[in-house]
Every structure is written in C-alpha cells, then in structure tokens.
Design a protein around this nucleic acid. Structure first.
Lengths: 110, 110
DNA sequence: AATATTAATCGTAATATTGCAATATAGTTA
DNA sequence: TAACTATATTGCAATATTACGATTAATATT
C-alpha cells in the first residue's frame, strides 16, 4: 500500500492530518520558525537559512503552501513568503480542543 | 534519499517534527479524538472504532506512543490507552508561540 | 538581445510509510 | 493443559517522501 485510506475518515480528520503532516519535517518547522523570527514577509533568502539545496527547499515550501500554512506572492523577481494564519488557526483550534478535554478528564489509570 | 537530514536541525525542530508527523495521518487523528471523546482511559476496543485491520491499528498506536502522544498500560488481558498530556503540551506550546508572534506581525504584503 | 538572478519543475535514487495476512505472544478461562 | 481472547510482530507489496543535479521559466539588468 503506502496510500492512506482517506475515504474512511471524516473531512476534518483528513484536513487536520494534512496540516500536521506538513509540519512533520524539521526543515518545514525551521521554515515556519524563520518566518516568525523575521516578523514580516520574507522575499527570497529562505534557501540560505536552511542546510538544504534550493530544489529541496522549494519542494518543502510547496508542501507548506499546499497545506495552507504559508502564502507566497510574486514580488518582482522573487517570491514573498509569509505565514498563512488560517491554517494555523485550524490546527491551533484542534490542540485547544484537546487541552480543554484533558482538563475535564480524570486520567485514573495511566 | 527518503531520509530526513535530522542532524542539520535543532533538537527542538526535530522533536516538534516528530510530534507533528505522528498526527499526520487521519487514523491517528481519529484515535486521539476517540480517546478524547470517551473522556477516560480506554481498554481495548480501539480496533473496532477504526476502519482498519488490527495490525494496522496496532502500528498506528505504536507510532503515537513512540512520539509521546499516548500512553499504554497493560490491564489484564488488554491494554489501557490514554492521552499523554506531556506530548500535547509540547506541541501546543509551539502553536501558542506561533499565535503570539502572529499578533505582533503586520503582514503587509500577503 | 545577452546575461544574470530567482525560484519551480523534472528525473531519479534512496528510504519511509501504509496496510494487511499470517504468525507470534501473552493472559484468561474452561 | 487446551482453547480462547487481545495485542504485537513479521514480512511483503504498493505507494509516498526526501534530497538533489540538471533543467526550465520568468523577470531584471546591462
């Protein structure tokens, strides 16, 4: 196999999984952290921040973009990247839900 | 390749990636949601909740456990599973950081 | 127009993931 | 002890991911 049985799960479950999966690589965590650090949109320069070749970085950026975690606009010769708040809102809500439920739980046995 | 260059990233980046990756599959999101829904530890019965064969579910549970997102204790003939709050705390903090930084940002161009 | 710059895409090799049948392991019960 | 139940492990096939060199596409600059 190798392909997930996405049809068997809810849209919400699949969407959350796509968002989480996009962050499931240290390079993509690093990209997000860099975008946060500069505290503004960044035009180019992401390749120089990472220990990876340009095509590899481009691929990681594409995955983050497809998942809805970053946005990229053309800015002259280069591209201007920044965080897509919508995607982070969705996944943050999931973790908020988890946290809220955990508060109500007793967790007697584990 | 196929193997991530984990050596090139910080421990924190790798740890967050491992946590996110573990949630990067709808079945594993479903498992977490089920553990939340029952609002207590669950002994057995997870296989019946998912549209997957027993060995596949067992494998997903193992991955969640390795990532530190669930705990499993032997309870007689079956195993008692529940959420591992520590793991969720770590990844929740990451998203809290992201959210805090986003509040400070201007986001002029995207 | 020719050249440089920036980023995406293609092609490909190495490795990882997903899913399950078959089997193994371990505790429980008859 | 033998049969039953619950979960883990093994082995394997199909597919996905990771990484990068080579190339392409598009815009700037000279």
């Amino acid at each position: 196999m190798g392909a997930s049985k996405t049809d068997s799960f809810t849209d919400r479950q699949n969407e959350l999984a796509i968002l989480a999966k996009a962050l499931g690589h240290p390079a993509r965590i690093a990209i997000i952290e860099f975008l946060l650090k500069v505290e503004t949109c960044i035009c180019g320069d992401i390749v120089n921040e990472l220990p990876l070749a340009q095509p590899t970085v481009s691929q990681h950026l594409k995955e983050l973009k497809n998942a809805g975690l970053i946005k990229g606009n053309f800015e002259g010769t280069s591209i201007c990247y920044c965080i897509n708040e919508l995607g982070f809102e969705k996944i943050k809500d999931f973790f908020q839900d988890v946290t809220n439920h955990l508060k109500k739980k007793k967790n007697e046995c584990c």
